[in-house]
Design a protein around this nucleic acid. Structure first.
Ligand SMILES: [Zn+2]
Length: 543
DNA sequence: CCCCCCCC
């Protein structure tokens, strides 16, 4: 019995490469190979429309890459491109077609040969076969796709968009089209370098995501324009290395908007074309070993939702709203996740729902906690395969298992006994048996030099030595860097009516007692020694 | 150029 082969979209490649929209073209895979030159895994495909071939199809999306590895897109497979973007790669000045969704029409194994268009003169066939993987298709001779030429046009004009993953500090002719996934609050800042305001937003396309920062002038210019879930064209901007300490996005770079930047709303985009938010989940159990203040994504079952409550900030005396949510995942570990203000009030998740959290900050209060910050987002029952797996686990066994909680409850702490300083001795603080107790005492003296320079490499925090040439050496990482992180080890003398003792406070506790961050204190030490001493001694005689 | 994210 004869096999009926699928019909390829003859002529589609020429149209696609000429920037004409072709709806769901049906193409045949001729060959593909992994691209090795970048650290990000990518595949390059040669596709045929039956008339000609083009080798500039690129696959970056992890979901599609996984399907490639499962053998779904072998040689001669006919596919329908459900979503793709034709862009100019600023690196090579040539069109590339980034495929973000495709489905198999018929497997290559079943077809077993090329489905070139049968022409009476045979002309197409001879041309179709000879495009090399590095070659440019011979169609569309009039197209000049140099990025510099393209950059002269307006932002929503003819310059082709490129994938976010193509942005590097070495090219400035990029133009992206990206959906905003989160928008941080506008904040004021002031330090030795000046003062101003800032906000940032995270956005993504089919390829990856990136954080965009806007300072002062650009902050005022774009703050109202940027809205979550809307799609924007962005051109120009300074591309910088991202500091991983402050985001968990899948990008080594960030954009800082400048006076040349153009940001325009892209109104004519369908919701179905929007890529799904991608997460890089950390298991709750592993939060124990994650550096404090790091930014993580978590997928969990909502085990309990507390009421929203009002508290007063100690620092600003302002009234704040907060809501605690207990999360549990397949590790049977539980952690408390705190949402703040409007986000806390608006939270409408229910017990037993699955929650995917992006960009939560790891904190510490009698164990580990998670806190929402202004770039944190969450989805309830997200449309990802892990949701059902986790839901089934919870219904089957998770809900009856007892959990190991990383965030000890306030009630548990409150039950601890109160001690006078004179009661603290070798018996109460014995070696490996940790004991917890509360004390009420007055700070009578603070150590005078609490700041040390720590290694800033992904959570190392070992003390670095000053090479006295502008570099600081970390013996653990075996690296020299111009950067370091000021950290605190503060000795304080406590006194109550029974006794006086010296205790050592590390970073977070020291910041709390002093009421100033290590960074701010360090800046004071450098710029204003009298104020530094004042800040250090400010806590003395406080309870 | 920010990098705070609050409370028990
Ligand atoms: Zn180090």
């Amino acid at each position: 019995m004869a096999v009926t082969y699928p019909q390829l979209s003859h002529g589609a490649l020429q149209q696609i490469l000429a920037d004409q929209k072709v709806n769901r073209p049906v193409l045949q895979i001729i060959v593909y190979k992994q691209m090795s030159q970048s650290d990000q895994l990518k595949y390059r495909f040669q596709m045929s429309d039956g008339v000609e071939t083009c080798s500039n199809f690129v696959i970056i999306l992890p979901e599609l890459i996984q399907r490639i590895s499962k053998g779904e897109f072998e040689k001669f497979t006919v596919v329908e491109l459900k979503a793709y973007t034709c862009t100019v790669n600023p690196g090579i000045g040539r069109e590339i077609i980034v495929v973000s969704d495709m489905s198999v029409v018929m497997s290559g194994a079943k077809i077993g040969k090329r489905l070139d268009k049968q022409e009476s003169n045979g002309g197409f066939l001879s041309n179709a076969g000879n495009t090399s993987l590095n070659g440019k298709p011979r169609a569309e001779p009039s197209k000049t796709a140099s990025p510099m030429a393209a950059a002269k046009s307006g932002v929503s004009g003819p310059q082709s968009v490129c994938p976010i993953s193509a942005i590097t500090p070495y090219f400035n002719a990029w133009k992206i089209r990206a959906r905003v996934t989160s928008k941080a609050n506008k904040r004021n800042w002031s330090n030795a370098r000046g003062e101003g305001c800032v906000f940032s937003f995270d956005c993504m396309d089919e390829s990856t995501e990136i954080r965009v920062n806007a300072f002062t002038k650009e902050c005022d210019k774009y703050y109202d324009l940027i809205e979550v879930n809307k799609v924007y064209y962005i051109t120009k901007g300074t591309v910088k290395t991202a500091n991983k300490k402050f985001s968990n996005l899948a990008n080594d770079y960030e954009i800082t908007l400048n006076s040349d930047s153009v940001v325009e709303l892209c109104a004519d985009i369908e919701v179905s074309e929007m890529p799904k938010i991608r997460y890089r989940f950390v298991q709750i159990k592993d939060l124990e070993s994650v550096a404090l203040q790091s930014v993580v994504d978590v997928l969990a079952v909502v085990k309990n939702v507390d009421e929203c409550m009002s508290i007063t900030s100690k620092k600003t005396q302002k009234e704040l709203k907060k809501r605690d949510i207990a999360l549990v995942d397949k590790t049977s570990y539980e952690v408390r996740f705190t949402l703040w203000n409007e986000v806390a009030e608006q939270f409408d998740g229910q017990t037993n729902q699955i929650i995917a959290i992006k960009n939560a900050v790891v904190g510490e209060f009698n164990g580990r906690t998670l806190s929402g910050v202004s770039s944190t987002t969450y989805q309830l029952d997200p449309d990802i395969p892990e949701t059902n797996i986790l839901k089934e686990w919870f219904e089957r066994e998770g809900q009856t298992l007892s959990t190991n909680t990383l965030s000890k409850s306030y009630e548990g702490i409150r039950d601890n006994e109160w001690k006078f300083l004179s009661q603290i001795n070798e018996q109460t603080v014995n070696g490996d048996n940790r004991s917890y107790f509360n004390i009420r005492a007055r700070v009578v003296q603070t150590g005078r030099n609490p700041i040390y320079k720590a290694c800033g490499q992904n959570g190392c925090l070992k003390k670095v030595t000053d090479n006295n040439n502008g570099f600081y050496h970390c013996a653990k990482c075996q690296t020299d860097s111009t950067q370091y992180e000021p950290r605190l080890v503060l000795s304080v003398a406590l006194s109550d009516c029974t006794s006086e003792i010296w205790i050592t406070l590390f970073q977070e506790q020291a910041e709390k007692i002093l009421g100033i961050s290590a960074k701010e204190l360090h800046e004071l030490q450098e710029s204003n020694p009298p104020e530094f001493v004042k800040a250090l001694t400010a806590s003395e005689f406080k309870e």
